[in-house]
Design a protein around this nucleic acid. Structure first.
Lengths: 146, 146
DNA sequence: CATATTTGTAACTATAATGGTTACAAATAT
DNA sequence: ATATTTGTAACCATTATAGTTACAAATATG
C-alpha cells in the first residue's frame, strides 16, 4: 500500500492562486479563484490570508475588490510561498522517547539534524522556481495564450 | 502560527528502532523497542512489518524471539528506510482543479514535476546518512558506550 | 508435552488535521 | 442605497494516525 505522508493542499492551492493572479491583468475575487481551484471561496480566503501577511498579495473588500500580486511573478519564489504558509517539518521527529534509554534519550536531536538537512535541500530546490516559471510551463501545456 | 504539515512519526520510529537493533548484540522484542520509543508494542510491530517486507529486518515469534537486522548498519541508508514505509508525496498536489480554466486545466502536471524535483532532492539528502551514522551520533551525544 | 514468550493481525477508540460550508459583519464602488 | 466582496467565527465530515485490546499462531525450554 502506498500512502501520502501529507494531505495538506494549501501549498498547491497557493501556487495555483498566485499563478492565476500572474495571468490576470485585473484583480480576481476569491470566488473566481475558488472556481479554478474547485473549492469554496472561504478556503481561498484562508489560504490567501497567509500570503497577504507575508506581503505577496493584497486584498480589497467590496465591489470590484479581490486579490492582486504585490510583486512581479518572476520575483516570487516557491520557497517563499512555502514559508508564507508557516508550515514546517515535512519529516516529523517522534515526541517523547524514553529518556532513560541511551538511544531514546539522544536520538531526537540527531534525527532533527538529519531531517532539517533533508528539508533544507528540498527548500533549496523549491527556491529554483518562481511563479513566472510555473505560469510559463502552464502556458506551454495549454499551448495558447492564457 | 507554525504548524507541522505532517504528523506521521513512522519514519522517525523506524530509524529509532533500527538504531536500537544496531546497538544490540541480541534480538530485541517489540516490547523493548516500544519502551524506548514510548509507545505500544503493536505500533512497533506494524511499523517493523514494512521494514521486514523490504528485507531490512527479520522477526521471530515465540520465546527468545524478537527483531534483528539483516544487514550491517552502515549498509542501511535512511532513504531506503524511508522508501520501505511506502510513503510518498511530502508535498501534495491538489485534487481536481477546473479543467475548463487554462490554469486549472494544466497546473497539476506542472506542480507535480516541481514537487517531484523538490522531493528527490530531499531523498538524496536522506541517502547520505546510514543507521551507522545515526548510532555514531547518538553515542557521541550519550558520551558513553551504548 | 506443557508452559511461557513473542509475533501477527483484526478490530476498535480517541485525537487531530484538513477541507468544506454557513452565516454575517465590515468595507467598498457605483 | 445597493450590490459586491473580504474577514472571520463557528461548525461539520472525512481522514490519518497512534494507541489499545484481544486472541490465534509460532517457538523455545524444561
Amino acid at each position: 500500500m502506498v500512502t501520502n505522508m501529507n494531505t495538506n493542499q494549501r501549498f498547491a492551492i497557493s501556487i495555483h492562486a498566485l499563478t492565476l493572479l500572474a495571468s490576470s491583468s485585473t484583480p480576481l475575487t476569491s470566488g473566481m479563484i475558488a472556481s479554478s481551484v474547485d473549492t469554496n471561496p472561504v478556503v481561498i480566503r484562508r489560504t490567501m490570508a497567509s500570503l497577504r501577511e507575508h506581503g505577496l498579495v493584497e486584498s480589497k473588500p467590496g465591489a470590484h475588490g479581490g486579490w492582486k500580486l504585490l510583486r512581479e511573478p518572476a520575483q516570487i519564489g516557491l520557497y517563499e510561498v512555502y514559508r508564507s504558509l508557516d508550515e514546517v517539518n515535512v519529516l516529523t521527529v517522534h515526541g517523547h522517547p524514553n529518556k532513560f534509554c541511551p538511544v531514546g534519550g539522544n536520538i531526537t536531536g540527531v534525527l532533527q539534524a538529519v531531517f532539517d538537512d533533508a528539508q533544507s535541500k528540498m527548500e533549496k530546490a523549491l527556491g529554483n522556481y518562481t511563479i513566472a516559471d510555473v505560469l510559463k510551463d502552464v502556458r506551454k501545456k495549454a499551448n495558447r495564450s492564457v
